[in-house]
């Protein structure tokens, strides 16, 4: 991500240190991860210590400090999905992709995350890939869904 674009985002938020999280969210949304250089640039422009930027970037779940795969898998671990068997869906995805939540595979194909609740409880257990919701998942259907991505 180029320096000018980051500066634009910082300017949009009036270089206000209290907008630090909002700035990081904007960069994350555009770039899908937060490179170290971007964090340093923000720290300098906002006059906020790097320790604080680093704490925020690792504290909130929305941020990633490493590049993400082409397809983002979100498995809902909300209570409704949990009681309907979400952990079996997770086991299946882990088995098929070889990665655990928070990880990205070596081919940068999939990134796997668990999320707290997607609020689609009627469809639980729910699996979301690149924003598309797949409902009422069981291990077999999960495997079928994953086959459609490369």
């Amino acid at each position: 991500m180029d320096k000018e674009r980051i500066d634009q985002i910082i300017d949009k938020h009036h270089s206000d240190p209290s907008s630090l999280i909002q700035i990081l969210l904007d960069i994350q949304a555009e770039h899908h991860w937060l490179p170290k250089e971007a964090l340093e640039q923000i720290s300098e422009r906002l006059q906020v210590p790097m320790t604080r930027v680093q704490h925020i970037a690792t504290f909130y779940k929305a941020f990633s400090l490493v590049p993400k795969g082409r397809h983002q898998i979100h498995i809902c671990m909300g209570t409704a999905c949990h009681v309907r068997g979400a952990s079996r869906v997770l086991d299946t995805v882990e088995g098929l992709t070889g990665i655990k939540p928070g990880e990205t595979d070596l081919d940068l194909k999939f990134s796997l995350e668990t999320v707290n609740c997607l609020g689609c409880c009627a469809l639980g257990p729910v699996l979301e890939i690149d924003g598309k919701t797949h409902g009422k998942m069981a291990p077999v259907q999960t495997a079928d869904v994953l086959k459609n991505y490369d």
Binding site: P49, M50, T51, R52, Q54, H55, T58, F59
Partner: peptide
């Protein structure tokens, strides 16, 4: 600010 917290 040489040392800080990370993660949660």
């Amino acid at each position: 600010h040489a040392v800080g917290f990370v993660n949660r």
